[in-house]
Simulated assay, not measured.
Amino acid sequence: MLNIENLHATVADKPILRGIDLVVPAGEVHAIMGPNGSGKSTLAYVLGGRPGYEVSEGSAAFDGADMLSLEPHERATAGLFLGFQYPVEIPGVSYLQFLRESLNAQKRARGEAELSGAAFIKLAREQAAVLGMDAEMLKRPVNVGFSGGEKKRAEMVQMGIMAPKLAILDETDSGLDIDALKAVGAGINAIMRSPDKSVLLITHYQRLLDYVRPDRVHVLSRGRIVRSGGPELAHELEREGYAEVAA
């Protein structure tokens, strides 16, 4: 699903990624952990196509295609979803309208039939129920007045509606209380646990991985993946810290 080879990237001419090699097969959830400043969010933004993040060397293939040659909206149309650590607020824009326009824009680009208003509302209510979220909240402006947990639940509803092939989730657990953490973990499992879908889950802490059990865990340090292992590696990081494990 995702194949990264020797990926180097800079931000404002400063090298951040220094040779990332990573394969995430279809049907698997991989977690990336690491200390602050190691390049985790940079990796997510590079794969998402955020301006200002420049690839200087290497490649990244998504579903067999060169994703680095695609514009951000083309990556989304191909089935990529990027979840943000801090979802943005968009005053004056209804979340429902935002989601419907986003979904139908992708359907038009793929030559698929657009959803009617009634069909979309039904879909939105179903996905909100998966996350234990009151669908009435989606009538409000995008993320305006939402708590941290509500923003993350709404973003998971968005992921369910868009139905991506690959979800890259950048510190989705940031700012979540225990109940929200459980709900988000259950949502990721319900939406993305499938033989034809994959998840790259970026996190500082092991706690989310109690609810979304990864197939592989990778440690990112100083712009490189320095260790990989099974779910037990996350527990080792929790006990020993990054300094010991990444040494």
Rank of each mutant, 00 (worst) to 15 (best):
D215R: 06
G27I: 06
E150L: 05
G83K: 03
Y211P: 09
G49N: 05
L233M: 02
V245L: 06
P164I: 02
V144W: 07
L47P: 12
S41Q: 12
G49R: 05
S221N: 15
I191N: 02
G111S: 12
N3L: 13
T203N: 07
V142M: 12
S147W: 08
E236T: 12
A183V: 04
R227N: 02
G175V: 11
A9Y: 03
S94V: 10
V212T: 05
Q206C: 03
R227C: 00
E136D: 10
T10S: 15
A234Q: 10
F62L: 15
M192A: 00
R110M: 14
K40F: 04
A163C: 08
D21G: 11
Q85A: 12
L22G: 00
K122V: 11
E244Q: 14
N143S: 06
G230Q: 01
L220P: 06
R227I: 01
L200T: 08
I225E: 04
K40C: 02
A9M: 06
Y53F: 15
D21E: 07
G223E: 00
D170E: 03
I20C: 04
A167E: 11
A190R: 08
G111L: 13
L82T: 12
P91T: 01
A135Q: 04
G49E: 02
P231C: 04
M159L: 15
Q127M: 15
I225N: 03
A243G: 14
Q97I: 13
